[in-house]
Every structure is written in structure tokens, then in C-alpha cells.
């Protein structure tokens, strides 16, 4: 199964960096789950929880107070 490269960064430190199965983010227009090979996208996030599903089904959650999301070339970057 193809994995998605995910980078979650805060201003002062990287939060997460690695390959994941999916990531669920709170978009302003509603929650969205991003899988591998997502189309290039820039979007705004609202406050909520970011859920990362790693290979093997392990789930990790990160709180966020809003931010931006960028996806290109199977690489998602979340700035919180």
C-alpha cells in the first residue's frame, strides 16, 4: 500500500515527520482525511485534533489551534 509523506511542524519545532497511511485534519469546510497521492492542495485548518494513522493502524493525535495545509507530490505539510 502506498504511503503518504507527512510533516507536521510548529513554529518552534517539528511535531511529526514520517510516512503514514492517512491523516485526518479539521478543515474550515469540514473534516477531511488525506490518503496517498492526494491532489495538490492548499487549505486552511481550524482548531481541532489532527489524527495520524501509521502503518499497522497505530493512531496518534495532535491538538491544533488552526493552521495551513499544503499537499504536493504525495507530501503533506501541516503548519500549526
Amino acid at each position: 500500500m502506498k504511503l503518504l509523506k507527512l510533516t507536521i511542524s510548529k513554529v518552534d519545532a517539528p511535531v511529526f515527520d514520517g510516512d503514514v497511511v492517512s491523516v485526518t485534519v479539521p478543515g474550515t469546510e469540514g473534516e477531511m482525511t488525506i490518503l496517498a497521492d492526494h491532489t495538490a492542495l492548499i487549505s486552511v485548518l481550524k482548531a481541532g485534533v489532527i489524527t495520524v494513522v501509521s502503518e499497522g493502524g497505530k493512531k496518534e493525535s495532535y491538538d491544533s489551534v488552526g493552521g495551513t495545509l499544503e499537499i504536493s507530490n504525495n507530501h503533506a505539510t501541516v503548519l500549526i
Partner: peptide, 25 residues
């Protein structure tokens, strides 16, 4: 790289969030 991004909901809304973030940076 030049990629055609989809911008959601629109550029102005993204800038509203991104510019304060850049000020922080």
C-alpha cells in the same frame, strides 16, 4: 516546482491564516 494547487476555500482565506503565521515566524 510549479504545481497547480487547488486552493480551499480561497486564496484570501488562506492568506488570512498564513500571514499572521509568517509574522510569528
Amino acid at each position: 516546482t510549479v504545481i497547480n494547487y487547488e486552493i480551499e476555500p480561497n486564496a484570501a482565506a488562506v492568506l488570512d491564516v498564513l500571514i499572521p503565521q509568517l509574522v510569528q515566524i
